[in-house]
Amino acid sequence: MTEETARRALVPVAAERVRPRGRPLRSRAAPYALVAPFFLLFAAFGLFPLAATAWLSFFRVDLTAPEARQWAGAHNYARLLGDEFFWNALSNTVLIGLLATVPQLLLALGVAHLLAARLRGRLFFRVAALAPYATSVAAATLVFALFYGRDQGMVNWALGVVGLSPVDWQNGPWASKFAVASIVLWRWTGYNALIYLAAMGTVPPELYEAAALDGAGRWRRFWHVTLPGLRPALAFTGAVSAIGAVQLFGEPLLFSSGAGASGGADHQYQTLGLYLYEQGWVNLHLGRAAALAWAMLLLLVAGFGLVRLVRGGRGRGAR
């Protein structure tokens, strides 16, 4: 902490002794008073629910009578391991997450590269790129559900115009995952593009000049100068997207008005978030829902651990 050392050096020792006691900033209580409001809420609504989730996952808890919970040991977890719907939801979550995140971040890189050029009306393009971000999950999903309608939807109509046969976006196992992922893609590409654009602005211009002097073309400058400068932003957006993907809930819930929490007739797009909701708030098994929540955390930790491992354990985290 260099600023800390610098600050200490600035405080004359004599002045420290002479200063009268009881000045609020000097008082020992002031820092605690400043952090207390945050940490009180943090403890109540952040730490406690997390710890209690772990605790509840070892009980049989009925939503209608949570007081009458019964110790169940590892039963909820054992049940999950033998539950085909859990494995289905897990694989759906990973697949939809990949379908949504990988193209999204690549596309965002491309859009950021376009936005980095000298443009007329660049504010307009940037604001327009944020319009999907300002649109809520619910509003976006309701419109996309109409786009993907089998008989009257715009997507199938457009496919028909170019001579392709219609796709059953609601019921196809891959088509429905793709459709749900496309909602996430639409909402977050512009937002991520602006993050990359901001990171591109932090790359020192001298590097580009040096690369240009070395005869590097546009593409090589992007690959060797821009991309390394984007590494922290890539890690940040990757982590945020992964967290979002593991929690995916609203899109599959509202994608089809009749399906509700089942995620399609064959659960073809039921995610872990949706399955948690179904177990806890439709089937009223809160203990199982808590175990699912921990499975989701484990999935995230495993994912981040894997990334770390691949990057040789020396990569900087998102934060």
Partner: peptide, 28 residues
Amino acid sequence: LRFRFRGALLLLVGATLLVPPQLGVVPL
């Protein structure tokens, strides 16, 4: 400001950045 547990508290806040709030909804 300097105070006891500053580093530990800061670390705690940072660690929760990667934990989705959805995980706590059942007890909440």
